[in-house]
């Protein structure tokens, strides 16, 4: 099945720089999540719109780090990055379309 089968596997020593980078990204994700909590509980409920906008921005920041660093997409070739990202425009379209639709249904009831 696999023509490249081999018994000679060379174990390489860990790259300290790479591992430090992984933990750095983990730390960023943790801090952003902690900030989300801070915003949820420290900002008074009158600032609802600001809260929601901050949550969405923080979610996109987290998604950027998970997809870009953990899933390694940031280090792939440009054509692969765009073939994954551009179709997500459909999601944005559907989101806007259905939220507006939901609002209209409420008004029409």
């Amino acid at each position: 099945m696999h023509s490249e089968e081999t018994n000679e596997v060379v174990v390489q020593p860990p790259d300290k720089e790479k591992i430090r980078k992984i933990w750095k990204v983990a730390l960023i994700l943790g801090i952003v999540t902690a900030c989300e909590f801070a915003v949820a509980f420290l900002l008074p409920p009158e600032y609802r719109t600001i809260k929601i906008v901050t949550f969405i921005i923080m979610t996109i920041v987290k998604a950027f780090y998970i997809v870009g660093e953990f899933m390694h997409l940031g280090h792939e070739v440009k054509s692969l990055i765009y073939s994954v990202l551009i179709p997500m425009a459909f999601v944005v379209w559907l989101l806007i379309a259905l939220i507006v639709e939901g609002d209209s249904i409420l008004m029409a009831r």
Binding site: V9, Q12, G30
Partner: peptide, 29 residues
């Protein structure tokens, strides 16, 4: 839910470390 979120993020981190160890053919890691 916050605790659950941190657990999942941490398990994602250990997964990256497993992938990194895989690049080095380090079976034990």
């Amino acid at each position: 839910v916050g605790i659950m979120t941190f657990i999942l993020i941490l398990s994602s981190v250990t997964m990256v470390l497993a992938v990194e160890a895989g690049h080095r053919n380090d079976r034990k890691a």
